[in-house]
Write a protein that binds this DNA or RNA. Structure first.
Lengths: 210, 210
DNA sequence: GTCTATACTCTGATAGAC
DNA sequence: GTCTATCAGAGTATAGAC
């Protein structure tokens, strides 16, 4: 559910999109049933095909909406004039808050991206790609500056960004396996993640500026 | 494809299992077709139901085999008497080598684990759970020892293990999104990952022993 | 725009011969 | 154990009334 929760009652098309979002994210595209989406939206199944020609089209529409709500905000923050430390704090904090509320979202994005490569093409428009490049350039400047001040070798900006993303996002992706491996109940896992939100930024900063 | 490639020609049941492995991993359980698995195995579709009662049972068998090939080796290595640095090196190296060869494997595990929670129950037997606990304890000892020598606060062993896993595994999980975000062609992504395999261990060690 | 009814396809599963 | 043939159910999509 990555719907912009506006004030006015949503029209049918939006209600279908909201419903499809929820069902697709929960069951996966292949596992989702048009009937279940119709039920969730409180409309007839045929109406889904009226507004969105096919299941694949509906899936594309949902995917596009998720991408639009996910990517630009983070790109903007990471390209801003915030300090490196603040960026790390905000990145970790933003994703922890967000993904805690939507635990199915990331596994959904991962699995559909792996299985339906065409969906990924819509993730980055040329402008967004340009913004991503700019973000990395900005990050590189900051990392180099810090490294120079500390007289240590700088790490690659791309590598650092993926390390940041990976260490932050992986628990949301692999939650069931982690719970099993570490023997964490639901409550304990939540405690683990809360602690992680507080401690991970310090760990990453330390690697960057020893 | 996590088949133990033995010498003798595999019997039919194993051939089916190998085929199912490949198809399930590529298409997901819901997206996989019994017919395609049968074709891949070079046998009749009915034979699948003779050896494995249903599609769900076949999926469980495949899942179990993947888990058995994935988990114990890493647990054993991480619980060994290798130094902390060597463990980081080996963890990163082992997964990079392995997942480069089987790029679909991890997204498959992630998505099926999220969608079919019962599958995860089979991942860790009581003995394996015990081994995992022992591994974490051993890791904690080593981290504490290093921290004490350097007069810094130790990080949580659980947190470190997940950070190690996340920063190492995430690129294999989110490859399509990363390629899009950083504008990497297939060749460039491979270069990126090769560089990562070399540089990530140093980054992690630095955070642990600044 | 929204519904009812239905066509048609796909696919998991079984029966039964060899 | 392996195959051929077939069924039953599920699920996407469409036709057509309102």
């Amino acid at each position: 559910m990555v719907k912009p929760s506006g004030q006015t009652a949503p029209d049918t098309k939006t209600r279908i999109l909201d419903a499809a979002d929820e069902i697709f994210v929960r069951r996966g595209i292949d596992g989702a049933r048009m009937q279940e989406i119709a039920d969730q939206a409180g409309v007839n199944k045929a109406l889904l095909h009226y507004h969105f020609r096919s299941k694949a089209d509906l899936a594309r529409a949902v995917w596009h909406r998720i991408a639009s709500s996910f990517v630009p905000g983070i790109l903007h923050m990471m390209a801003s004039d915030l300090s490196l430390d603040e960026k790390i704090d905000q990145f970790v904090d933003a994703y922890h808050r967000r993904l805690t509320r939507h635990p199915y979202l990331l596994p959904y994005v991962i699995s559909e991206a792996a299985r339906h490569p065409d969906l990924v093409d819509n993730l980055y428009s040329p402008e967004r790609r340009q913004a991503a490049r700019h973000m990395i350039d900005k990050l590189r400047e900051q990392i180099d500056a810090v490294a120079k001040a500390r007289r240590i070798a700088p790490v690659s900006a791309e590598q650092f960004f993926i390390t940041l993303a990976g260490s932050c996002l992986y628990p949301f992706v692999a939650r069931p396996m982690i719970s099993e491996a570490l023997g964490l109940s639901t409550t304990k896992f939540e405690g683990f993640m809360e602690r992680r939100r507080r401690e991970l930024p310090a760990f990453l900063k330390r690697a960057l500026q020893p």
